[in-house]
Every structure is written in C-alpha cells, then in structure tokens.
C-alpha cells in the first residue's frame, strides 16, 4: 500500500455518502467545542448573578435598614448595576461572536484562545470590582443594626494596636480568600477549555 492507494480508496469510499443531513436547521445545536462549553457555563452563571443582584436590591426591604443609610445603599446599588450591565454586555458580545471558524486554522485557534482568555479575565475582574461594593454595603447594613457595637469596636481598635492589627488582617484575609476562590473556580470550571485550545495551538506553532 502507498499514499496513492489510500487516496484512491478514500475518494471512492461509499461510506463518505452515509452522512445524515438534518431535515431542518432547528435540529442543530452546538455541544462539544470548548469555547461553546465556556460560553454556556458563563451564561449559566450570568443568570445566578442576575438573581443575586435582584436579591441584593431587596435586602433593605427584607432586613430593616435605617432611613439614613437607604440613599447611600441604593447609590452603591445603582453603581453596582452599572458595572454589572457593562460586564453582561461584554459577555453577550462574547456569547454571540462567531468563533472565527472561517479564518486559517492558526488564526482561528489564536482568536478562540484569546477570546476565551479575555472572557475569563473579565469574569475575574468583575468579581474583584464587586468586592468594595459588597464591603461598603455590608458595613451599611451592620451599622444600621449594630451601629453602637461597631462604634465601640472602632474605638477599641483605635485604642488597642493589637485589635487594630487583627481587624486589618481579617479584612486582608477575607479579600485574599475572595481572590483565591475566584482563581480556583475559574481554573477548575473553565481552565480545561483553555488548555484544550492551547494544546492544539502549540501543535501548529512553527
């Protein structure tokens, strides 16, 4: 056997005609492309985030919020919605992008790779941007309910260096935990798709 024999057999193989073409386009759906899985995963998370935003907006109605904190709370909430709208719009653009399958293989792989990386980085930055909002809104809620206790704790921390240090360390640890959880979550949920595209990209590199 040689390659000409394979070519001949390959082009005259009756098996080639055994493809079942769908009767209509509606029957088609994408399933196994890493980038499609990534898009689907992020779309699912977007619904959870939208639901969470709704709940946050209702918190002052569920838990009593002192009238003096209502305006600052909702000012932050509107800013949070603005940031979320920007992020959701970017995600929508990624979701609707064609995936560049008509480019050369190398260009197509690079496009997919960077598109996927960019989406994940955006997802992470969105999470980090929400942190200060969460902190301040949480502080407003605590102040509203345990204002006196918080003032006492503040006075105590100002007077006692060790307490101030413990409080600062707790804050830094909490923020660092958010960072670690976000990194771990994106890596375990979406990292494999990036690695799959990267492995093919490495093969094609000159």
């Amino acid at each position: 056997m040689n390659f000409d024999d394979i070519k001949d057999a390959w082009n005259n193989d009756e098996e080639n005609e055994k493809l079942r073409v769908p009767a209509s386009i509606d029957q088609l759906k994408s399933a196994q492309l890493p980038v499609e899985k990534l898009r689907r995963g992020m779309k699912g998370e977007m619904y959870v985030q939208l639901f969470s935003l709704l709940i946050i907006g209702l918190v002052p109605q569920i838990i009593f919020l002192s009238p003096v904190f209502v305006v600052p709370f909702y000012t932050l909430y509107v800013a949070m919605l603005g940031v979320s709208a920007y992020y959701f719009f970017k995600l929508y653009v990624f979701y609707k992008s064609s995936g560049a399958v008509t480019l050369t293989s190398k260009e197509s792989l690079y496009e997919l790779y960077y598109e996927a990386r960019l989406s994940i980085e955006m997802y992470k930055s969105y999470t980090y941007v929400l942190c200060p909002f969460g902190l301040v809104m949480g502080a407003l809620l605590i102040l509203s309910h345990r204002g006196a206790a918080l003032t006492n704790l503040y006075d105590f921390a100002v007077a006692n260096e060790q307490v101030a240090l413990i409080l600062s360390a707790s804050l830094v640890t909490s923020l660092f935990s958010v960072f670690l959880v976000t990194e771990y979550w994106t890596k375990s949920s979406y990292g494999k798709y990036i690695r799959q595209i990267k492995s093919v990209l490495d093969e094609i590199k000159e």
């Binding site: 386009i25 088609l28 759906k29 994408s30 492309l33 890493p34 980038v35 064609s98 995936g99 560049a100 399958v101 008509t102 480019l103 050369t104 293989s105 197509s108 792989l109 997919l112 799959q196 595209i197 093919v200």
Partner: peptide
Amino acid sequence: YQLWKSFDSFQQQSSFSTWMYRVALNTALV
C-alpha cells in the same frame, strides 16, 4: 452547526467545498 452559523461569511470567492473544508477542519481541531 458551525457551517450554518458562518454561512453568511461565505462570499463565493472560493468554491463552497473549499470553504466547507476550512470550517470543518477548524471545528474538528477544537
């Protein structure tokens, strides 16, 4: 599915089979 999604980008500058090969291969690669 990918061919249908990109069908609008087929500009008849090349034959359909050439364009189809490219999309099919790029899909299979990932």
